[in-house]
Each structure stands twice: as structure tokens, then as C-alpha cells.
């Protein structure tokens, strides 16, 4: 009888151990990683073409008015037009993006990561799944800007 009680105590402690382990894994998945954000990937897809995307990568944020409304799914290269094609997934809740929206690639902070910023236009027609954003502005490349600045300084003097 004593033996049975001890065995049961061990079983309860092992059960507790497993439970705590899985709670820790769950905590890491939901609270620490981006899984909670990735779960609602049921939004819709938009594409945009840029002549230069800088260091934009998959999973970079897409934001409107500074609020994240989606993520970049893929960045690929179109070998016919020599442009970069950015595929974005926009949250389903944000379904009122006008079709004359302007897509910019900005940098968060001076050396931060790059993100796509959408500036809504005035059209009453909304973009739907698979549509392409027509108006885009490429990433600002720091080296190019410095080069242009030096060039204009030299030209001005």
C-alpha cells in the first residue's frame, strides 16, 4: 500500500513536470514568438513592383499610418522588367485600401529595418485579393543619397 502511494506521487509529479514543460513551450510559442501574429494569415494578398527594395525581406511589416496591417510574404525578381515584385499579405480586417494607394519603402529609424508603408488615396474602389498596387516609391538607399548630395554640392559650387 505504501508502495502504491509512492508510485502515485511520482506519477502526479511527472504529470506536473510534463504539464509545466508544455506550458513553457506554449508560452514561448504564443508570447515570445510571432506565432500568435502568424495564426491569422487568412488575410488577402497584394503585390507591388519596385525598382529597388533595398533590404526589404519576407516577414517585414506592412503598415498604414504607422500601424501594422500586414506582412511581406515574398520578395522576388521579375527578369523581364528588372523590377522587384513584393507580395504582401494584408489582414482581413483591413479591407478598405483604395486602389490608388501609394506604396513606399521606408526605414524604421536611421539604421532600422525596412518596411512597406501604404498611403491611402482617395478612390472609392478598394483593392482586393491578388490586386497590384500601381503607385510605388522605391527604398531610399543611403549610399545613393550621399552620392547625390556630394554630386549636387560639387555642382553647386
Amino acid at each position: 500500500m505504501m508502495g502504491m502511494g509512492k508510485q502515485r506521487g511520482i506519477e502526479i509529479l511527472v504529470g506536473l513536470f510534463m504539464a509545466v514543460g508544455f506550458v513553457a513551450l506554449f508560452f514561448l510559442a504564443m508570447q515570445v514568438s510571432n506565432l500568435s501574429a502568424a495564426v491569422n494569415s487568412d488575410g488577402y494578398q497584394l503585390t507591388a513592383r519596385f525598382s529597388n527594395v533595398g533590404s526589404l525581406k519576407a516577414r517585414s511589416p506592412v503598415s498604414m499610418a504607422g500601424v501594422r496591417v500586414g506582412r511581406v510574404e515574398a520578395v522576388s525578381f521579375d527578369k523581364d522588367t528588372y523590377e522587384a515584385v513584393v507580395t504582401m499579405r494584408i489582414d482581413a480586417a483591413t479591407d478598405t485600401i483604395p486602389d490608388d494607394t501609394f506604396a513606399n519603402i521606408f526605414t524604421a529609424g536611421l539604421l532600422g529595418e525596412q518596411y512597406v508603408a501604404l498611403e491611402p488615396g482617395g478612390s472609392m474602389e478598394y483593392l482586393r485579393d491578388g490586386d497590384e498596387i500601381a503607385h510605388t516609391q522605391s527604398a531610399l538607399i543611403l549610399e545613393q543619397m550621399i552620392g547625390q548630395f556630394l554630386f549636387s554640392k560639387a555642382g553647386g559650387d
Binding site: 514543460g21 508570447q31 515570445v32
Partner: peptide
């Protein structure tokens, strides 16, 4: 079996 669960606890408590 125990190792990944212990590692998850370590990371979670560490965070």
C-alpha cells in the same frame, strides 16, 4: 523526452 521540456522551462523562466 525530459530534455526539450526542461529547455523550454529554462527559456521561459529566463525570458
Amino acid at each position: 523526452l525530459a530534455m526539450p521540456l526542461l529547455a523550454a522551462m529554462f527559456s521561459a523562466v529566463g525570458v
